[in-house]
Write a protein that binds this DNA or RNA. Structure first.
Lengths: 341, 341
DNA sequence: CTGTTAGCGCCTTCAC
DNA sequence: GTGAAGGCGCTAACAG
């Protein structure tokens, strides 16, 4: 004898009544309800997840796909920690669990997603690290599982997303550097199809032109999303005859490696080459000078993400409009940005 | 019509045969088996988790409890990323999923664990951040859910664990510093009941005495497990008349804050105060000089953890002996450690 | 207000 | 080698 049946027997009532009492359904004698609740508390009874899931088709669980692998393990994953932390807090209030679904770099992301969907163990999904063209989005739309992406995509479709302001960051960075007299303003972005890189790059191009500057190819540095990649960028930049005097980069590991590369060559970030990053990171903690970055409220972002997916999953009727929001950021300047000498 | 029944119908065979074919059970015509497998592949069929779980009482999922919260979000969680990455890879080979169960600092860890256990959605558990006296361990033993802890505990019981060599680190650190002539060798540990702190502290005491040095109270600094805590330690240390000439600290955020504190006061890590940390961290990336730390193979640790819990859960018959292992580390010295002048 | 019962999707035992 | 049927724990619909 186990589960709800044991509980019912110990109270000499039927499992139906127990279930109703536990689930707050109407039509139960208040006294009976109290007895059930008390006994459940005492015995530590909680409904078996599989049984409930099988019956209701709901698991009270939201999944979040995150990429792992050698690169992720080496980098600083502080961004996801902060966001998931806030998300979880918001979900907990609704009795919903957040589980992280690590998709290793060596796995096929589509197969992983397919398997995850078919298993039926989550009610909704948060997709991260979106690509410019992301086949996972089409798969999710076809699956009818509610989802939201952290990061936009060019993939067509009527899905919910939230994102950081990569265009705004690039625009403000270029504008500020131009204001300080810089003309050869370079940009460093990671290899790969990440949508954020495309947005950042495109915005740099546009703002360069708006400033009357040329976004020429020798100002564009594409390399690995790692410190080594950033160091490569530094080496190639220092190699140029008409060396860029400033650079913006949206990857923290690359910024770290880049500054390391500069310093190793006796070139000072700030004094010799102005540097603007995207977000603060533990990796940049002891760089001198500190790096100019954008401040953002990841707590608020996480909370908004949670609200969006919870609404989509559990209040589908009310969720008439699809969330599409760009989280605001504030530029914080340090001595890593200086006027052109 | 859904699930296994739809698959069976589309092949004009019974669901029993489909199930046997899919699960590699004997007694299925090879040709039939191929047809089933092929169709499953094509349609992307995967057994529904709730149905299978309900029937078998197994979910092919291992949970891992990790602590989250403001402190965790600010710190560098690179350690867990590396370990879980390796664990997941090893589990995937066995068709087992690893899910992370974030337990927020604001939640009662015992209630969280209780709820997790009762939900019945995992076959085994990995517990992290063990305390000297950890009530979660008693709860797990009573639950009969197989588990392994990452980190020992003084809590009695016959459970499996793996851990890092905190005693070895403290012992080697003190021995090396003593060898270089240091006599006032301080130690900094985080507040709280974490078992690792107790081990580290006790080993420092023993080795100090073994070196004929006094582990006096003014050499012991206990503060928050944060950069601010580390900065506090620096301030208090610099304040002493008979200032310690060396320190060991097992918390990376504290080391980071400590070195920041020293530098802010114009005191050089290494040249003025020798510093030995525990593990390398993004937070220490651009400190000059780099900090002497211990190298460890987190990949191997993660793989061993995975093997241990998988054995416990799915090969209980063969797992006659309980895993209890301390992962080896290698001291890597830098200019943050220098002879006493 | 409470008891009884069907059935969610799957695996396994028992017939054949 | 295959089909039929029971039941894992739970909730909801239906009786009483």
């Amino acid at each position: 004898m186990t589960g709800i049946r044991a509980l019912a027997d110990s109270l000499n009532i039927s499992i139906g009544t127990v279930s109703r009492a536990l689930n707050g359904k109407p039509g139960v004698n208040p006294e009976t309800r109290d007895r059930v609740l008390k006994m459940a508390q005492e015995t530590g009874y909680v409904a078996n997840a599989a049984g409930r899931n099988l019956r209701k088709g709901l698991t009270n669980t939201i999944g979040m796909v995150i990429g792992t692998g050698p690169a992720a393990a080496k980098g600083d994953n502080n961004f996801f920690m902060a966001v998931t932390d806030a998300m979880q807090r918001a979900m907990l209030e609704r009795g919903v669990d957040l589980i992280l679904l690590p998709c290793h770099a060596a796995m096929d992301p589509l197969a992983f997603l397919q398997r995850t969907l078919q298993r039926g163990s989550i009610d909704g999904l948060v997709l991260t690290a979106t690509l410019e063209q992301d086949p996972r989005i089409a798969m999710l739309e076809a699956s009818h599982l509610p989802f939201i992406t952290l990061g936009r995509s060019r993939t067509p479709g009527n899905y919910a997303w939230m994102d950081l302001d990569f265009e705004g960051a690039a625009r403000q960075s270029v504008a500020r550097l131009a204001e300080l007299g810089h003309r050869r303003i370079a940009i460093g972005i990671p290899k790969g199809q990440a949508n954020l890189s495309a947005l950042y790059l495109e915005s740099w191009r546009q703002q360069m032109q708006a400033e009357g500057l040329s976004p020429s190819d020798d100002l564009l540095f594409v390399d690995d999303f790692t410190e080594a990649g950033g160091a490569q960028v530094a080496a190639r930049l220092l190699d140029q005859a008409d060396r860029p005097t400033a650079i913006l980069m949206c990857s923290e590991p690359m910024i770290s490696g880049f500054c390391g590369g500069l310093l190793g060559a006796g070139v000072q970030p700030g004094a010799d080459v102005s540097v603007i990053g995207f977000r603060q990171s533990p990796l940049l903690r002891h760089l001198a000078p500190p790096i100019s970055c954008f401040d953002m409220d990841l707590d608020a972002l996480g909370e908004d993400m949670a609200k969006a997916i919870l609404g989509l999953v559990y209040d589908a009727d009310n969720a008439l409009h699809i969330t599409r929001a760009i989280s605001p950021m504030t530029y914080v300047e340090t001595a890593s940005v200086q006027p052109l000498r």
